[in-house]
C-alpha cells in the first residue's frame, strides 16, 4: 500500500519539480516560449519553436513510414499467416522493440546516414526537387534520416497492438462479410478494419508518443541545428535532442530553466498523446489487456 502510494507521489513529484525548476523561464517568456524562433544561450533568449518543429516533423515522417508498414504487417500476421508462423514472427517484431535506442542510433550513424547522403537524398531531390520539402544538399544527417530511424523503432508498437486488436474482432463480423460473397481482402477492408479502427488508431497514438519522446537515436542523426528549414534533407533539432546535448552545459539558471521547460512541454505532449491512445484502446473494450 505504501509502495503503491509512492507511485502516485513520484508522478506528482515529476509535475512539481518540472514546474518548479522551469519557473524562471516560465515567468520570463510565458507562452511566447513555444513560438520564439531564437535559441541563443549567450544572449539568454530562449524560444523553443525550432525544437517543437523538429520533433513534430521527425515524428510525422516516422509515422508516415511506420503506419503502412506496421499495419500491413499486422494484417498479414492476423489474417494470412498460419498461427505458428504468426506467433514466431510476432516474437521477432517484439524483439525489434526490445533493442535499445542507442543501438538504433549507432546503426543510424553508420548505415542510414551514408545511405541518405548517397542514395535516398540525391534521388529525392532529383525526382521531387521542385517540391520545397526535398530541396537542398543532402548532408545525410537531418530530419528525414531521423524519421526513417524512428519508423523502424515504432513499427513494433503498431504491429503488436494492431495484431491483437485485429485478432479480437468477433468471428461473426468476419463471417457476415464472407457470407455476402466478399473476398478475403474485402472482408478485411470493409468489415474487420472498420471494427478495429479505434484500436488501430490507439496503437498509432501509442507509437506517436514514443516517437515524440525518443532521444538517443534522434540525437545521433538529426543534425542538431536549431533552425527551421523547409527541406527534410536539412539538419534540424528536436526537443529531446536539445535536452540530451545541452543539459550538462547549462551555465545559468535561466538556461537550465528553459531546458527544463522543454522537458515540461515534452511531458505534457506525451501525456496527452498517451491519454488519447489509452482512450482509443479502452473504446475497443480491451483497456486492460491492450495496454502496451
Amino acid at each position: 500500500m505504501g509502495f503503491a502510494l509512492s507511485i502516485l507521489a513520484i508522478v506528482l513529484g515529476f509535475v512539481g519539480t518540472l514546474l518548479w525548476n522551469s519557473r524562471f523561464a516560465l515567468h520570463k517568456f510565458g507562452w511566447s516560449f513555444l513560438w520564439g524562433q531564437t535559441w541563443d544561450p549567450v544572449a539568454e533568449i530562449f524560444g523553443a519553436l525550432p525544437f517543437v518543429y523538429g520533433t513534430l516533423v521527425t515524428s510525422a515522417v516516422g509515422l508516415l513510414i511506420a503506419v503502412p508498414l506496421g499495419l500491413g504487417t499486422a494484417i498479414f500476421l492476423a489474417e494470412l499467416a498460419p498461427p505458428r508462423l504468426s506467433e514466431s514472427l510476432s516474437f521477432l517484431v517484439e524483439l525489434l522493440a526490445a533493442i535499445p535506442s542507442v543501438i538504433y542510433g549507432l546503426v543510424g550513424v553508420f548505415v542510414v546516414v551514408p545511405w541518405v547522403r548517397t542514395a535516398v537524398g540525391p534521388t529525392l531531390s532529383a525526382v521531387l526537387g521542385w517540391f520545397p520539402l526535398f530541396q537542398g544538399t543532402p548532408y545525410g544527417v537531418g530530419l528525414l534520416t531521423a524519421g526513417i530511424i524512428l519508423a523502424a523503432m515504432i513499427v513494433p508498437f503498431i504491429t503488436t497492438v494492431s495484431r491483437e486488436v485485429l485478432l479480437a474482432v468477433p468471428r461473426s463480423q468476419r463471417e457476415a462479410a464472407l457470407a455476402m460473397g466478399a473476398t478475403h481482402w474485402e472482408t478485411v477492408w470493409t468489415a474487420i478494419l472498420p471494427y478495429a479502427r479505434s484500436g488501430i488508431v490507439g496503437s498509432i497514438f501509442l507509437a506517436l508518443a514514443r516517437a515524440l519522446g525518443e532521444t538517443m537515436a534522434v540525437t545521433m542523426v538529426v543534425g542538431n541545428r536549431p533552425e527551421i528549414k523547409a527541406s527534410l534533407l536539412e539538419p534540424g533539432y528536436t526537443m529531446a535532442a536539445v535536452l540530451a546535448n545541452e543539459f550538462t552545459e547549462a551555465t545559468s539558471d535561466l538556461y537550465l530553466h528553459a531546458l527544463v521547460e522543454i522537458g515540461l512541454v515534452l511531458f505534457g505532449v506525451t501525456f496527452l498523446v498517451n491519454g488519447i491512445a489509452r482512450l482509443m484502446l479502452f473504446k475497443m473494450g480491451h483497456g486492460q489487456e491492450l495496454r502496451a
Binding site: 507511485i7 513520484i10 519539480t17 518540472l18 535536452l243 511531458f267 506525451t270 501525456f271 498517451n274
Partner: peptide
C-alpha cells in the same frame, strides 16, 4: 493510471527528474 503515465514519460524527462532530485 499513475503507473501508465509513468510508463509513458520520455526517458530523457526521467533524467531531468533525477537530476533535479
Amino acid at each position: 493510471y499513475a503507473t501508465d503515465l509513468l510508463n509513458g514519460i520520455p526517458s530523457i524527462v526521467v533524467g531531468i527528474f533525477a537530476y533535479t532530485l
